[in-house]
Simulated scan of single mutants.
Amino acid sequence: MSRWHEIDLLQLKYAIALYEQQGLTKTAEYLNIDKAFLTRKITSLEKRLQFKIFKTKKTPLKLTDAGKEFLNIARQILNQFEQTIELCQQLNRAEKEHINIGINISIANSILPEIIRKFHAQFPAAEIMLYEMPSYEQIEKLRHQEIDVGFFHRHNLENTQRNNDVFDSKIIFKEKLVIVLPLKHRFAKQTHISLKTLANEQFILPPEHLLHSLREQINSLCKESGFQPKVKQEAAWISTILSLVAGGMGISLLPANVENLQRNGVVYRDIQEQSPILEIVAVWRKDNESILLQSFLQEIENV
């Protein structure tokens, strides 16, 4: 009974090399192994095959009929094995070389550039795909595995009705709300402003259907100061809100990251009363085993 299951790939490599190099001494030098070791490996291979590969070990080496067929198949096996390994490595690299990230304005205007810079330095070949979208859309895309990680306010995740056990998360940073005023507003020279003094102002705010949790916190904060904000206009994009404020259309309350935008025509002022703290979290699926994702999350820890 043949013991083919005891044959390893190196023995196939040695047998092919011996025939191509035509001699034990030359083959041993080519493979950088001991001649006696090579002899034992070839003898062991023929014993396990239960047929001779070589008619004689003397040069010129000649193959038996069975040996000729065996070496042809052995070459195919090694080539196929090498191609399979290469293909699997390519698939593995492909899996690692792209990461889909959902972002919101807060992370984009704050620490995201530093995270991306550090991550790119570690993985220069990785393709980073950024998608700016509302939190509810990020959550759905995480559920359907369309993005690897999302960045948004923590309360948006807590306020979802569906089961969130599939997610893991970590707090990335915290920020407060600030008052955004036109440059020539009567309160522009004050460093801290009481919300109570803004009761009669016209507000430019994000729409509730897109940024519900942010609007909820703004409304709650104003309510604590005794009024509901008079919303003159809504705008989905923070840049649009800043343009409207700069144009004198009204004032706004926005997350403090907007100060990084350095928009001409507006000033940012602190709220005199205690401002709610907005927690920005990174959220990902617990079952996402991507090595690239884990490396990305590690870079977040380092920022």
Rank of each mutant, 00 (worst) to 15 (best):
residue 158 E to V: 08
residue 298 Q to C: 01
residue 91 L to G: 10
residue 231 V to N: 04
residue 26 K to F: 03
residue 296 F to N: 02
residue 211 L to R: 06
residue 232 K to F: 15
residue 292 L to W: 01
residue 18 L to H: 02
residue 258 V to R: 10
residue 150 G to V: 10
residue 144 H to W: 05
residue 265 G to W: 06
residue 204 I to F: 05
residue 153 H to R: 12
residue 21 Q to V: 07
residue 67 G to T: 03
residue 68 K to Q: 13
residue 238 I to E: 14
residue 76 Q to T: 09
residue 43 T to R: 10
residue 282 A to P: 13
residue 229 P to V: 08
residue 101 I to N: 01
residue 94 A to V: 06
residue 34 D to V: 01
residue 195 L to N: 04
residue 112 L to N: 08
residue 86 E to A: 14
residue 16 I to P: 00
residue 53 I to D: 04
residue 225 S to A: 15
residue 63 L to A: 02
residue 113 P to E: 10
residue 285 R to I: 04
residue 41 K to F: 00
residue 235 A to T: 06
residue 174 K to R: 15
residue 187 F to T: 03
residue 176 K to L: 02
residue 87 L to N: 11
residue 214 L to A: 08
residue 72 N to S: 06
residue 253 L to D: 06
residue 299 E to Y: 04
residue 167 F to K: 03
residue 136 Y to K: 14
residue 213 S to D: 12
residue 179 I to S: 04
residue 8 D to S: 08
residue 259 E to H: 04
residue 259 E to P: 00
residue 94 A to C: 05
residue 99 I to P: 00
residue 274 Q to N: 10
residue 119 F to C: 12
residue 44 S to H: 10
residue 218 I to N: 00
residue 95 E to G: 12
residue 1 M to T: 11
residue 296 F to L: 05
residue 50 Q to A: 13
residue 163 N to H: 11
residue 33 I to V: 13
residue 154 R to F: 11
residue 71 L to W: 00
residue 143 R to Y: 10
residue 80 Q to T: 15
residue 42 I to Q: 03
residue 297 L to Q: 02
residue 279 E to P: 00
residue 251 I to V: 13
residue 165 D to Q: 15
residue 169 S to E: 09
residue 186 R to Y: 09
residue 200 N to S: 13
residue 196 K to H: 13
residue 175 E to I: 13
residue 36 A to K: 15
residue 156 N to Q: 14
residue 272 Q to C: 08
residue 5 H to R: 09
residue 255 P to L: 08
residue 288 N to F: 03
residue 168 D to M: 11
residue 294 Q to P: 01
residue 111 I to G: 01
residue 177 L to I: 06
residue 44 S to V: 11
residue 85 I to C: 07
residue 185 H to C: 01
residue 296 F to W: 02
residue 226 G to W: 06
residue 231 V to S: 02
residue 237 W to Q: 14
residue 288 N to G: 01
residue 227 F to E: 06
residue 3 R to M: 11
residue 139 I to D: 04
